[in-house]
Structures are given as structure tokens and as C-alpha cells.
């Protein structure tokens, strides 16, 4: 018991080491939220391009269709590369190669960018499956009223698809949150890296690592219960 108290003292109180945990957690959350926003934007755009391309039937010609073909090809390339390589490697390439001239104050932004680009690939496939889950009659009804493809997506298909894909999106968010724990590889002090620093000072791993495990778990559980809340809301709105 005395040992544990001593360890807790060393890990959190001595030399204000709790700051490593607090600042690290802030960095982890910041990266996760920024990456989530970026990933959602990329994901929806890619999903719409791919669905628009898929929904083209017949032998359409013209510049617009050629352009869509090119865009679709680029999207496929993006999906293949991003989903085919580890997010850690993407982060290393981003920081040490693409942004090698950037100074360390922009590290958090580069990490967010890297994880956002990574997450976008997974969100895109989630959103695309959501779009495909909506009856084609909805699109036809929208188009028959004179709405454009984009308007039909925006006002009719995507609002309905969101309900279906919410659980998958929250799962992606949870994965994203946990994956940011590799940020230490580029020297960014996130929650995990914070615990590693503390361990290197106190020479005892037990309390710091168990502590961050608990902190990650709390964040994940918070997200899970948020999902439960949202699902109950949506189910309530389904009943009306």
C-alpha cells in the first residue's frame, strides 16, 4: 500500500508530472477531433464521387463524365493506398518526408492532417455503404422533381444514410482515438508519449501505463454511451 502511494506520488505529484498526462490527453483529443472533422469531409466527398460514378448507367459521353471518371480513379487510388498501409507509416512519411521543413510547433497540425487523411478513407467506405442502403426510388423521386444529383444527395439521401451509418462512424472514431497513440513516433507528446516520458523519469512503468489505459478506456466508454444516446434519439424519431 505504501508502495502504491509512493508510486502515485512519484508519477503524478512530484515535479508536477500530472501535467504530462493532462497536456497529453489534450493533444490526443485535439488530434482526434481535428482528424475526425477532416476525415468526415474527405469521406463524404469521396463517397459522393464514387456513388455518382457508380450510378451512371448506359453509355454517357461528354466532358463531365470523363472528369467524373478521372475523379473516381483518383478516389480509388487514395482508398487503396491509405487502407493498404499502416497509419503509423503514413504519419512518419508525412512528418519526416512531406513536412520535413516544418518546425515542431506545427507537429500537432501535421499529425491531425495525417490521421484525417487516413480516417477519410474509412469514412468514405462507410458513407458509401450508407448511400447504397437507401432505396434508389428516393434518388429517382428527387431527380424527377428537377433536383440535381448533388441536391438529391444533400437533402434526401445523405440525411437518411447518416442514421444507418452512425454506429459505424462512432466505431471509426474510437479506432481513430486509439490509433493516435502512435504520435510519439514523431516526437509529439500525446497521452501515450506523456506516460513514456514520466516512466523514463521515475523508472517505474506500472502506474503511468495503467493510468493511461484507464484514461483511454474512459474516453472510449464516453463515446460509446454517446452513441447509445444518439441511437435512442434516432429510434424515437423513427417512430413518429
Amino acid at each position: 500500500m505504501d508502495w502504491l502511494l509512493d508510486q502515485l506520488w512519484q508519477t503524478f505529484i512530484e515535479k508536477d508530472r500530472w501535467r504530462y498526462f493532462a497536456n497529453g490527453m489534450a493533444a490526443t483529443l485535439e488530434i482526434t477531433v481535428l482528424a475526425l472533422i477532416l476525415g468526415t469531409i474527405i469521406g463524404v466527398l469521396v463517397a459522393v464521387v464514387r456513388s455518382a460514378h457508380d450510378s451512371q448507367r448506359g453509355n454517357k459521353k461528354g466532358l463531365g463524365h470523363a472528369l467524373l471518371g478521372v475523379l473516381d480513379g483518383l478516389c480509388k487510388l487514395y482508398l487503396t493506398v491509405i487502407r493498404g498501409t499502416p497509419s503509423t507509416v503514413q504519419l512518419l512519411i508525412m512528418w519526416f518526408i512531406l513536412f520535413r521543413w516544418a518546425d515542431s510547433s506545427s507537429m500537432l497540425w501535421v499529425a491531425s492532417l495525417s490521421f484525417g487523411i487516413n480516417s477519410g478513407a474509412y469514412v468514405a467506405e462507410i458513407v458509401r455503404s450508407g448511400i447504397m442502403s437507401i432505396d434508389l426510388g428516393q434518388t429517382e423521386a428527387g431527380r424527377s422533381l428537377g433536383l440535381t444529383y448533388g441536391q438529391t444527395m444533400q437533402f434526401i439521401v445523405i440525411p437518411q444514410a447518416v442514421k444507418n451509418i452512425l454506429p459505424a462512424l462512432v466505431n471509426e472514431l474510437i479506432t481513430l482515438l486509439k490509433e493516435t497513440s502512435v504520435c510519439g513516433f514523431i516526437g509529439l507528446t500525446d497521452l501515450t508519449k506523456g506516460a513514456m516520458i514520466v516512466q523514463s523519469r521515475t523508472y517505474s512503468p506500472f502506474v503511468p501505463y495503467i493510468a493511461i489505459a484507464v484514461l483511454y478506456l474512459i474516453m472510449v466508454l464516453a463515446l460509446t454511451s454517446l452513441l447509445g444516446l444518439l441511437e435512442r434519439r434516432l429510434r424515437a424519431s423513427d417512430r413518429r
Partner: peptide
């Protein structure tokens, strides 16, 4: 053009 032609479907297709 479509905005000047209304269409009604077998399955209604309300939103």
C-alpha cells in the same frame, strides 16, 4: 425539364 414534368411512382417514394 424534369421540373416541368411531374412523376408519381408505384411505391410513392415520399421522403
Amino acid at each position: 425539364l424534369r421540373s416541368r414534368m411531374g412523376m408519381v411512382f408505384q411505391q410513392f417514394n415520399l421522403f
